[in-house]
Computed example of a mutant assay.
Amino acid sequence: MDELRMIAGGPCRSGGDDKCGNGDCPTVYATPEPDMLAIQGYDVAHPTPEGESVVLIPENILKEAARARGWL
Rank of each mutant, 00 (worst) to 15 (best):
K19L: 15
G23R: 09
P34S: 08
A45T: 12
I39W: 11
I39Q: 08
L56V: 00
P47A: 14
S53W: 00
C25W: 03
S14D: 14
H46Q: 06
D35M: 05
A30E: 09
G21D: 03
M6I: 14
I57S: 12
V54Y: 02
T48D: 00
G16K: 03
G23L: 09
G16T: 05
G23E: 13
P32V: 08
D18W: 10
G51A: 04
G10I: 15
R13T: 15
A38M: 13
G41N: 01
A45F: 02
I39A: 11
C25I: 03
H46N: 07
L56W: 06
D24F: 13
G21Y: 09
D18Q: 05
E52S: 08
T31S: 09
H46D: 06
E33Y: 05
Y29S: 00
G51F: 08
D43Y: 10
G16D: 14
P34M: 10
K19N: 15
C25D: 05
D17A: 15
A38S: 01
Y29C: 11
I39N: 01
T48L: 05
D35A: 06
G10F: 13
A8N: 14
A30H: 11
P49M: 06
Y42H: 07
M6E: 12
Q40I: 10
N22D: 02
A30N: 04
G23W: 09
R13G: 13
G51M: 13
